[in-house]
Each structure stands twice: as structure tokens, then as C-alpha cells.
Amino acid sequence: MEILIQIFVTGLTLGSMYALAAVGLSLIYGTLGMFNMAHGMFMTLGAYAVFSLASVFGVPLILGVLAAMVAGAVIGMLTHLLIVRFMLNSPDFETNILVATAGLGILLEDLILKIYGGYPYPQPVKIEGTFSVGEVNVTYQALVILLIAIVCIGSVAWLLLKTRFGRAIRATAMNRDAARLMGVRTNTVYLQVMALAGALAGVAGLMISTLATLSPQMGGDPLLKAFVICVVAGLGNVWGAGICAIGLALIESAIGFYFGVRFGFPTMLMLVIIVLIWRPLGLFGKEKVVRL
């Protein structure tokens, strides 16, 4: 029973961080049709932005979350304005944008390394202390992560489903030309999506850095997992990504507990490949009919 609670708590904490990353990644893919290889760096930047702010002013958690969001949103918008915007209607967009964002990722990582060095700083903005559930000690930080993830993803869901703003985003994702005929400025929508996904990534980065430490490469591992989650859910399926994030994180933490942490991700990946052989477009993906 204790073990189960432990696995459950670890899985939920991991899962909520993955979900923050994966939902943004999926949102970008669904709307712009691009896979953002720099998403991991969006997370890293969010974490470092809060670190910088906190080492100067000493900010409370809520302000830290806001700062991470702003940092992520800004880098997301800059990515759109400086790179994506010019490539949107080019042939081979899908491959070329992968290359461009991968280039951006390696560039940003090097910049962080040059500015902060490789020292694994601890994240100052976090909550200390534990409480116990049964016999298991749970950190308050884990609870905070879960709460923040729920609030963030809940807000995004509300935004997308219930507002005019969100309707325009979904319309653009479903049918770009028809959305333009309704008077939607699709270029603005793309910018908003990049900002929204960037903000989620920034928060994810902050959360990840509270559990481990800050490092220029900290975004790599969660990005990899977010990729896998998006692929299982079906690229562009935002809700599926959220659900798969929690599910896969629970499996990962169970495997990690019983067989060792290094087998967590390989098992997850094997499962994913089996899922894809059975359903090539992901668990929640829908077949698109392509005519000859």
C-alpha cells in the first residue's frame, strides 16, 4: 500500500509536469503544424528567468510562476516573429521547421551556458517541508506542482473551449482558410498560440527545476518525454496529450520503482511503439482521408 501511494504521488507529480510541456507542444503542432524542437529550451529559459529574478529580489512562488509564464511567452512569441513567420507557407515546412527549431534549441542552450555557466544551481523559488499520507512522506512542493498544473491546464481548457479567443484558435487549427474567411487574423492566432504554449513550457521548466536543479540541459529529458506523449496521443490532440502525460508518468514511476529508474523511459518507449503499431495515428488520432 505504501509503495502504491509512493508510486502514485511520484507519477502524478511527474505527469503534471509532462502534461504542461506536452499540452503546449501539441497545441503548437495542432495549430501551426510544426514540431517545436526548441520547446525544451522554452522550459529551461522559464526556470532560469525565475532564478535570476529570485536571486536579485527574492520573489514568492506566485510571482515566480508568473515570471516563468512571461519568460516562456516572450521566447515563444520571438520564435514566431523571428523564424516561424517567414517559413509558414514554404514547401517542406514540416521538415524545415524541425531543423530550424532544433537549431534554435542548440543556440539557446549555448547562450544559457555562456551566461550562467554549467553549475547546477538549486531553484530558490520553492516550498520546503513535507506531510505524510499514511506512512508516506509527501513534499509540499509535489502538491504545489500538482495544483499549479491543474490550474494552468484547466485555464487553457477553459480558454480553448469557452471563449471567442479559444474558438478562433481551434478554428484555425481545423481549417486555416475557413477561419480567415470568418475574419480571423491567423497570423495573430499563431502568435497567441506560441505565447500560450511558451507560457505553459515556462511554468513546466520552473516546476522541474524545483525538483532537481537548474542546468542548461535540463529541458532535454522532459522534452523527449513530451514528444513521446504527443506521439502516443496523436500529434495535435491537446486533450489526449494531457491524459497520456499522466498515464505514462504513472507507468514510468512504477517501472522505475520496481526495476530501477534507468528502465523507466525505455519501457515507456517500448509501450509507445507497440501502441503505434496497433494505432499508427496515436490513441486519440483520427484518420485523415487522403485522396489520390
Binding site: F35, T95, L98, V231, L235, L269, I273, L276
Partner: peptide, 24 residues
């Protein structure tokens, strides 16, 4: 295993597999 898929899916899966072996 991967080439049932196309495009970005292939890129992501092959990347994940290579990274997994790296970490192992």
C-alpha cells in the same frame, strides 16, 4: 517499427530511440 508512420512522427520516434539507447 517506425516506418508505419511518416513525417514528424518518424523524426520524433527515431530521436527518442537513439536517446534511450544513449541513456541506457
Amino acid at each position: 517499427a517506425c516506418l508505419r508512420l511518416t513525417g514528424a512522427y518518424v523524426a520524433l520516434l527515431t530521436y527518442a530511440i537513439a536517446e534511450m539507447i544513449h541513456v541506457l
